[in-house]
């Protein structure tokens, strides 16, 4: 690992675990899309679920891409390496989550306004004609299980490697299984004549997805604008960034300190002369999180901003 590239050895195993989880996600979710497509029939709700499941592959895909780029070394054209690929991937993942929420909300509202009554008829299998709804429910149950398990497995890994893309993907998986449950409720509703059940359940879930997505987008934009590092699950400042600022002030007095985040790494800038004894990352962040401090710069003569 160099200053501007590579995965720190302290988190290499967890990043590898994150990659394996995302490969599993792509495989399982592709199988979910295939199963849903086979039984969707003419149901608009099922079509929407298939589109949503396809969109949900985006965060897993961009996570794998960003880790691949993070390992690449700096070059003449990109002297600071590709660590910010993670920030870009976070923006893409957050946008995908917002798209899923927005699409679901649009579909639900439009179904309720137009009072669309979904038709679910029969399908003949092995000489028996059964209600297609049973197959849809079976497919939806299948669609709920992988994201529920994978999402729960991703949360602790995302926390350990401070990866907002992986965290957003865990949110996407939550959106997947919640939408699947809403779909099951909707199909049962259709069976008992409640045509509005599916759309109403989906509308409530879409609002929760949109809320998560807007939070993630705020964080992604803050990161790209060199904002102070944010917590993984909210737009509040992260605990380790607050702790680092406190430690730096304790060492160097009441000077200006700027922290920003490049992907999962923190860069710190202190407005004072370079000290004779420069503290190590472990001194400032502790042994567990030392990898997170990618750079510490001192600026003896702060430049006045142009009026």
């Amino acid at each position: 690992m160099s200053l501007h590239s590579g995965i720190p050895s302290a988190i290499a195993a967890d990043v590898g675990r994150g990659e394996r989880l995302e490969h599993w996600t792509l495989g399982w979710m592709a199988s979910v899309v295939l199963v849903m497509w086979l039984v969707m029939g003419a149901s608009q709700a099922m079509k929407a679920a298939v589109i949503e499941d396809l969109l949900s592959l985006v965060p897993a895909f961009v996570f794998l891409l960003s880790v691949h780029w993070e390992r690449r070394g700096p070059n003449r054209r990109f002297p600071f390496g590709y660590r910010r690929a993670n920030s870009l991937a976070f923006l893409v993942a957050a946008t995908a989550l917002l798209s899923v929420g927005g699409f679901l909300a649009y579909e639900s509202v439009s179904t309720l306004i137009k009072q669309e009554h979904p038709s679910v008829g029969g399908i003949t299998l092995f000489g028996h004609t059964i209600w297609l709804g049973w197959l849809m429910i079976a497919a939806l149950v299948y669609s709920v299980v992988p994201p529920m398990i994978l999402g729960r497995m991703k949360h602790p890994v995302a926390e350990r490697i401070k990866d907002k893309v992986l965290h957003t993907d865990a949110l996407m998986q939550k959106a997947d299984w919640q939408t699947g449950l809403a779909g099951i409720a909707g199909i049962i509703g259709i069976g008992i004549g409640w045509w509005w059940a599916d759309a109403t359940a989906a509308l409530f879930i879409s609002l929760s997805i949109i809320k998560d997505a807007v939070g993630a987008l705020q964080q992604a934009v803050a990161e790209l604008l060199d904002g102070t590092p944010r917590a993984l699950d909210s737009n509040a400042l992260s605990d380790d960034a607050k702790s680092l600022a406190t430690t730096l002030k304790a060492r160097f007095g009441d000077v200006d300190i700027r922290l920003r985040e490049t992907g999962r790494y923190i860069a710190a800038e202190v407005d004072c002369a370079s000290p004779a004894d420069i503290p190590t990352a472990a001194d400032l962040m502790g042994d567990d999180l030392a990898w997170r401090l990618a750079s510490l710069s001192f600026r003896p003569e702060p430049v006045e901003a142009n009026p």
């Binding site: 669309e116 038709s119 679910v120 008829g121 029969g122 003949t124 004609t129 209600w131 069976g191 004549g193």
Partner: peptide, 22 residues
């Protein structure tokens, strides 16, 4: 052709048509 959402009629006629085909 059946009215969208009339799922009881839709399923019953689907079953009858499948039985007729057999």
């Amino acid at each position: 052709a059946r009215r969208n959402g009339e799922n009881a009629l839709i399923l019953a006629t689907d079953r009858a048509i499948a039985a007729m085909a057999q």
